[in-house]
């Protein structure tokens, strides 16, 4: 195994990896790099739990092959810790008690960070669209929407 090369940064750190061509980014991040802040609920693109930023775009990491990502800049939820915007979003959601089991939270934070980065005051439609790829089985959606609409009010 390990026949393809991939060089990219994750949370600012450069990695040069030799990977199996079929390896998905999710496994690279969790198993190879030990980034357990990336969660997974399906490994088939259906739940959004594994979402990371790839060059600023929120993407389910289970749907990307690591070998195709040379040159990319990847950020995980844990990598956003020093971002004031991410702190604002997380605090607003926590304040509404939007997360219960919390398993969907890192993926959702990454998604919202991407959204607020390009649209600092997203509309309800934009918020819904961003959240539409994320399953929260605990049913936090209405509380998330409430928290986020308040956050974007100037």
């Amino acid at each position: 195994m390990g026949t393809a090369h991939a060089n990219f940064t994750v949370n600012g750190r450069l990695h040069r990896l030799c990977v199996d061509p079929g390896e998905i980014l999710l496994d690279t991040l969790r198993h190879r790099l030990g980034l357990t802040d990336v969660k997974w609920g399906c490994r088939e693109g259906a739940c959004g739990a594994c979402t990371v930023l790839i060059d600023g775009r929120a993407t389910p990491s289970c749907l990307r092959l690591t070998a195709t990502l040379s040159g990319a800049h990847i950020l995980t939820a844990g990598g956003l810790i020093a971002e004031p915007l991410a702190q604002d979003i997380a605090a607003a959601l926590e304040n509404k008690h939007a997360f219960q089991c919390g398993f969907c939270a890192p993926g959702i934070l990454v998604e919202l960070f991407a959204l607020f980065s390009r649209a600092p005051q997203p509309s309800a439609d934009q918020l819904e669209q961003a959240l539409s790829g994320h399953v929260c089985r605990c049913g936090g959606y209405p509380l998330m929407m409430e928290a986020l609409l308040k956050l974007n009010a100037p």
Partner: peptide, 9 residues
């Protein structure tokens, strides 16, 4: 500032 442990994984 977030005080929870879930969001950042």
């Amino acid at each position: 500032r977030s005080t929870g442990t879930a969001a950042f994984g």
